[in-house]
Design a protein around this nucleic acid. Structure first.
Lengths: 229, 229
DNA sequence: CGCGGCTTTGATGTTCATCAAGTAAAGTGG
DNA sequence: CCACTTTACTTGATGAACATCAAAGCCGCG
C-alpha cells in the first residue's frame, strides 16, 4: 500500500458523488484526503473493524464477504468503482459488518469519517445522493442473490461467467479474478462441483479455459443455461 | 381497506422516525396523512408500481417478494413495524422493485412522496435517520439470506420456525402467518420437502403442528439443527 | 526442493426435486 | 346451503443433482 496525493478535479467519481459540493468545499475536502493502494488479495476492510474512515473506490475490483459461525467464508458480491461498496455500514453502524478484499489492484480514497459526517449533517442533498447509491447497491445485491438462489449449479456458473464477462470486463475473454473456491463461496456450492461444471462447459465447447483465462465461445447457449438451466 | 384519521402525537413510530421534526412541522405533516388498512393476503405494493406515496407500517406483518422471469415468486423477507419495508426503493427509484403483501391485518400510514421529499431536502438529520434505518433493514436481509444459503433443508426450516418464534411472535406457540408454499418460496426449496421436514420435526417431537398452529417443544434441539443441521 | 494451496477427476452415497395420487380445506356460483 | 372447483396439504416412490471422500497433478513460494 502506498500513499499519494490525489487531484480531486480529475476524479471520475466527483460528478456523481460530490455533485452537491461547491468547488471551494471540494478543495477543502480534497486536502484532507489520502489515496491508498491495495494489491490483489490484500484486505481493505475486516468484518468487525471500527469505522473511523470514509472510503470509496477509485479504481479496481473487490469482493464483499462475511465469515459464518462455522468459520466458512461466504461472498456476498463483487464491486467495481461507483459501487461504493464500503458505504453499506458507514452511516448506520460503528463497525463494519462485512470484509472487503481486493481481488485486483485497487485504489481507495480515504477521508476521516467525522469530516464527512459533519459535512453531511448540513447538506441534505448530499446525504440523499449517498442514500440513493446505497439503495442501488443493495438492490443489486438482493436481486443477484435471488437470481442465484433460484438457479441450479449450471445456471449459477453460467450466471457468474456472464457477470464477469458482461458487467465487469465487457469482453468475452477475460481472466477470472477469483479462485474456483471463491466462486463456490459466492454461489453456495462445493469447489469440486464448480470445477466439474466448468469442465463440462469446456467439453461442450461453450467456453475455453486455460487456468484462469476464460473465453466465452457460445454466449447464446451460456445465456440460455443461465436463464433456464 | 378503510381510511381513518390518525393522531400522530400517539404514534409509536414518531420518536424514532420523526425525531428530527419539530412539533409544529409534525402537526402539519399529520394533517396530510392518511391511514389505510389491509387484511391478510391483500397487496399493499405491487412490483413495478410508480412510487407516488411515502408509506410506513404502523401495525401488522408483511412479506416482501419478487416475481422471477419464470413466473415464480420468491420471498425476500418479512417485516413488522419499525422495519419500514417500503422504504427500500423510495428515494432511489421511481418504481417499486418488490411487492409488499399483508400476511396479517396491517395498518399503513401514507403521505404524498413530494411532501416528504421536500421536507427531506432541508433536513439532513432526517435523511440520515432514514438512511440508517434502510441500512439496518438491508443488512438484516443480506445476513438472513446468507444464513439460509449456507444451511440445508432441515436447518432452513428450523431457521424459519425460530425466526417467527423468537423475532416476530416472541412465543414458543404461534400461528404460522404463511403457507407451506410460501415457506418454500422463502427458503428456496419445494413445498413437498417443506412439509416433509415439518412432519419429520413433528415425529421427532421437536414441534407440534395442528394446521398452521405451531408449538416448539424442544427449542434447544431446533436451535442446534438451525446452526449445524 | 518440499510444502501447502489450488485444481482436477473419479467413485460413492446423501439430499433433494419431480412425479403421482389422494385427502382436507376453502372459496364460488347456482 | 350444497355441489363444485380450486387451492392447500400430505405421503410415497423414483431418479437427478449435489456433497463428500479420496487421490493425484500442478504451481508458486520460502
Amino acid at each position: 500500500m502506498g500513499n499519494t496525493t490525489c487531484n480531486c478535479q480529475d476524479c471520475q467519481l466527483k460528478d456523481i458523488f460530490f455533485s452537491n459540493i461547491k468547488t471551494d468545499e471540494l478543495l477543502n475536502i480534497c486536502d484532507l484526503k489520502v489515496e491508498k493502494q491495495y494489491s490483489k488479495g490484500e484486505s481493505i476492510i475486516q468484518e468487525g473493524d471500527l469505522i473511523t474512515e470514509f472510503l470509496y473506490m477509485k479504481e479496481g475490483l473487490v469482493k464483499l464477504s462475511k465469515t459464518a459461525i462455522n468459520g466458512k467464508d461466504q461472498i456476498i458480491s463483487f464491486s467495481k468503482p461507483f459501487d461504493f461498496v464500503s458505504l453499506l455500514s458507514v452511516f448506520s453502524s460503528s463497525q463494519y459488518k462485512y470484509s472487503v478484499t481486493a481481488i485486483e489492484e485497487t485504489t481507495v480514497c480515504i477521508l476521516q469519517l467525522s469530516v464527512v459526517k459533519n459535512f453531511a449533517q448540513e447538506n441534505a442533498l448530499f446525504v440523499m445522493d449517498i442514500m440513493a447509491h446505497i439503495s442501488e447497491i443493495t438492490d443489486n445485491i438482493i436481486h443477484d442473490n435471488l437470481e442465484i438462489k433460484r438457479k441450479h449449479l449450471k445456471g449459477r456458473i453460467a450466471h457468474v461467467l456472464l457477470y464477469f464477462s458482461d458487467y465487469i470486463y465487457k469482453n468475452d475473454e477475460f481472466e477470472l479474478p477469483i479462485s474456483r473456491r471463491e466462486i463456490a463461496e459466492y454461489i453456495g456450492m462445493t469447489t469440486e462441483n464448480v470445477i466439474r461444471t466448468l469442465s463440462e462447459f469446456r467439453k461442450d465447447e461453450i467456453i475455453k479455459i486455460v487456468g484462469k483465462d476464460i473465453l466465452i465461445v457460445d454466449k447464446k447457449r451460456l445465456k440460455s443455461i443461465s436463464e433456464f438451466g
